[in-house]
Design a protein around this nucleic acid. Sequence first.
RNA 1: AGAUCCGUAGCUCAGCCUGGUUAGAGCACUACACUGAUAAUGUAGGGGUCACCAGUUCAAAUCUGGUCGGGUCUACCA
Length: 1121
Amino acid sequence: MSAKYKEYQHLNLPAIGEDVLSKWNENQTFEKSIAVRDGAPSFVFYEGPPSANGMPGIHHVISRTLKDLVCRYKTMKGFQVKRKAGWDTHGLPIELGVEKELGITKEDIGKKITVEEYNRKCREAVMRYKDKWDSITKKMGYWVDLNDPYITFDNQYIETLWYLLGELYKKDLLYQSVSIQPYSPAAGTGLSSHELNQPGTYKNVKDTSAVVMFKVVQNEKAQFLFDSLKAQSIQDELFFMAWTTTPWTLPSNLGLTVGPNIDYVAIHTFNPYTGIPIVVILAKNLVSKYFKAENENIDFSTYKEGDKVIPWKVVASFKGSQLADCRYEQLLPFEANTPEIAGGDPFRVIIGDFVTTEDGTGIVHTAPAFGADDYKVGKKFNIGILTLVDREGKFIDGTGEFSGRYVKNYKDDPDYVDVNVDICVKLKKENRAFKIEKYEHNYPHCWRTDKPILYYPLDAWFIKTTALRDQMVALNKEINWKPKSTGDGRFGNWLENMVDWNLSRSRFWGTPLPIWITEDGTEQKCIQTIPQLREEIKKASHLNTQKTLDTVENNIDLHKPYVDDIILMSSKGEPMKRVPDLIDVWFDSGAMPYAQWGLDHEKLAAGDPKPFNAPFDTNYPADFICEGVDQTRGWFYTLHAISSLLYGSVAFKNVISNGLVLDKNGNKMSKRLGNVIDPFKTLDEYGADATRWYLITNAAPWDNLKFDLAGIKEVQRKFFGTLYNTYQFFALYANVDGFKFEEAYIPLKDRPEIDRWIISSLNSLVKKVNELMDDYEPTQAGRAIEEFVDEHLSNWYVRLCRRRFWKGEYEHDKICAYQTLYECLETVLRLTAPISPFFSDALFSNLNEVSKRHEAASIHHVLFPVADESVIDASLEERMQMAQDISSLVLSLRKKVNIKVRQPLQKVLIPVLTQDMKTQIGKIEDLILSEVNVKELQYLTEDNGFIKKRIKPNFIALGKKLGAKMKAVAADLGSFTQEQISLLEKEGQISLFIDNEPLILMINEVEITSEDIPGWMVANKDALTVALDITVTPELINEGNARELVNRIQKIRKDNGYELTDRIEVKVEANDLLATSIEDYKAYICAEVLADQLELIPELSDGTEIEVNDISLKVFVTKKA
RNA sequence: AGAUCCGUAGCUCAGCCUGGUUAGAGCACUACACUGAUAAUGUAGGGGUCACCAGUUCAAAUCUGGUCGGGUCUACCA
């Protein structure tokens, strides 16, 4: 039996997808795609683990399409691409979800519910939507190994994290320190940034703000200030002015921060509260905020205390950098805030980039304990730290009259007296306040207690990323970022301004920090492996319960609360408890290159610096990763940090950061707005191929995508519809003729020009697609394929070649046509396979099952096409483009005068400006003539005077030479006569007078085009001009009628449901108007409609009434038995 | 607040790196045509102050600076 190419009824992409999917499942096509590359070089891909705690959305489909297409492409390029799936299972979103479900808060954990029970709930919740995820993964055609995923809550995984943390610890890159975190004294707990971002936490409140004065100490650094005062005979006290909205932080002040490039001035004036003459320093830009312009330089001697008009005068100006290290007197000294207690070298002016001149005075009161910036800059300049407020939010003992007072009304005390006001009153009395006022600003509040938070130093563990910043920056330069700007800008910038990584989280469900510590904090142990833990606990068995000992020995779970029960022993025999912190979940995912394979204890024992299970060695670093751009400072960063810190290597070599998926109006998709796209519905309705193709080709991956279902429909119809039609066309005729690609491959030189052309274009496309895919530009690649399929293959090659497939015998030309079209289809399918894996596999299999050209069972096992440069013929492609343009021009002319294409016309005129152009068109003459149904093509050369020419400057060439004279020359050329143009053409140059200066213009400095042929219908595009002879002679009408008749008979054949190959007999009712036509073209008509007989009958009783160019007549068609 | 991306036809996008005188496609709309690929296709038409302002230049959608609008990340600070 003879194999046939499968023909379809309709294009049903979802059905094709399902069909292919079940074949993949049956035949283990994915597994085989990896197996067939055994021994080949590996291409390493890392899967960023999603959390199965939420439903997959359409935005997951885009990044997974990108991941998948790169992996499929690389597989087709001959690499082995292993793809281990992963699940991110720890973290706050899961905990919050569980809390919500149980109706509890963080404080209830350990009280209303045990930590054990709570974590069990988290563990259950985390895989809640795993089924949905697995389902979308399969449906969308994302090939990833779901059978053996890495899971971040697995003991093996956590153990590897512990090992890595231990390595950091050994390198002194893991340390404990305080960090300034949002803290709620009312609730007695630190708040995560996530909690701070709850709606409604930021409120507008009115606080007492103060501009206070810090007295400058006269010493070497400040001498220049005093000198300039002395020069002006000013002997009054000199102050720095600083502003604060939290006066309660003033006793903890240890520094004043100025901007190095900000301009400051010293102003001689009077304190508005005390009337004492003073000199104050503040930013020049902010002077007007405190001093009225009309009072500048007025007479000081008339001023009395209490006057509204306060004179002032600028007495010095300087840059902030000049103030560095000037000292000042402590503002509010008490027993508890001496320099000794503060540590460091306080009460100095220091330099900070964060200082602005938008608020305040341009000098920032710096209390390191109560602000992140303050802490950072304070640490940098070693000004010490004072925490004069306790965790309940009240002043500690030793702060004078303020001791024991709450800095805000945290207890809802009706008799609360604002300590901030009292501080300000004190400062006023001491001539240390310049301006006290209520100030309204946005301040964060605790979302549970509604009380203002404060920033408070809390203990935390850090990774010292800053120690290796330079290396991280240098390694980043090795990474190929798509788009580049994300790497240079967003990521590069982030690295430059990096701070140490705060690992600590005070939560319950996560990776515990494996550090045990004695009560006095003098001894620490960092545990790296489970065996090590077992060993250590054995030494401390007397400190632990039997239950704990059993658990550790038999079935340890490296989570809370079990690890917290474990007590180790110090060298001095003291008990050691684990620090209560969990680590940032980002460490979990950033460590996946190592932890996904787990720890190899044998390698570890042998001292291998990278003791991870196989196939780690061949799977690090990654060649490619891809995630949303929101991961830049998330996963991308943590991967990079851990890899740089521990192994001095990049973790990934190429990265695509894709943009967001927005709704069709450009809004973020959110459940609240109800504009989320259900990916399941989309895939079911339109199929994965169209969805994937749309996602990839509609916008560059890193641009935000405005997702519109109408766009998928368009892709479905426009691209897949066209490709499908082309395939159907091929299958239809190939089945009729029994073409199975059995004949030897016909050398291109023996094929017609149009075949050579499409093969040339095809190879140009292959070349381009390879380059673009190698450059991680799938959007460009997809668009190039679209253009080829639509413009070249379908709209030109197939359209022009249709007759070759259904006319004539099965011999040389026909086989050429089949071979050519087959090659195009097969190659295009292979090019599209990474993007649209189902459709391409289906059609490829249809082709291959008949031709058996490839041994592979799936398109995803064959190799990606490689361009054969020897068949690319640029000049052929150029002239075919010309043929398309000329045909389009002729057709547009026909349209203008309403002469249908079926009506033959006599001739076309084309002015040719060069010999080369004439040669080129000559080669495609026949093609054009048959396409536009014209009998002959005449060339007009320049010397016949027929053509009207147009001249314009070649701006690129002339620009450099002429510069400003360009406009004048352009105007001059615009008024050139035909004679001048031909003179220039003949001589090769012409002299002009521009602005009364002579100028020689060369022929290559202008562009001459033909524009018009007097007396003809013309049309032009760029340098091409086409004229059409629209005279319709009686002979031409006869021929047109004959063609029209053929067309009508064909329609009848089709209506009657005849097979393509059926022979017929035709009887036509005699008609004077058509008699000559039918007689003259009888042979032609018969050949076209496969008629063995064509008779003219005077009267026809039966038959179909038809119209041929407004002539009515009857035709009777019968099938020959 | 900082960083970054984006802003071109009603819609989705090219073009911008490397400045050049008619700013392109597709969709949608309108009209006409084609009819053995036919739930396809072709041709033509309308539709743009290339977000705005300034600068550089003979010449700016394109280069520079700024403004506005949208997105994202980071931060929240006297």
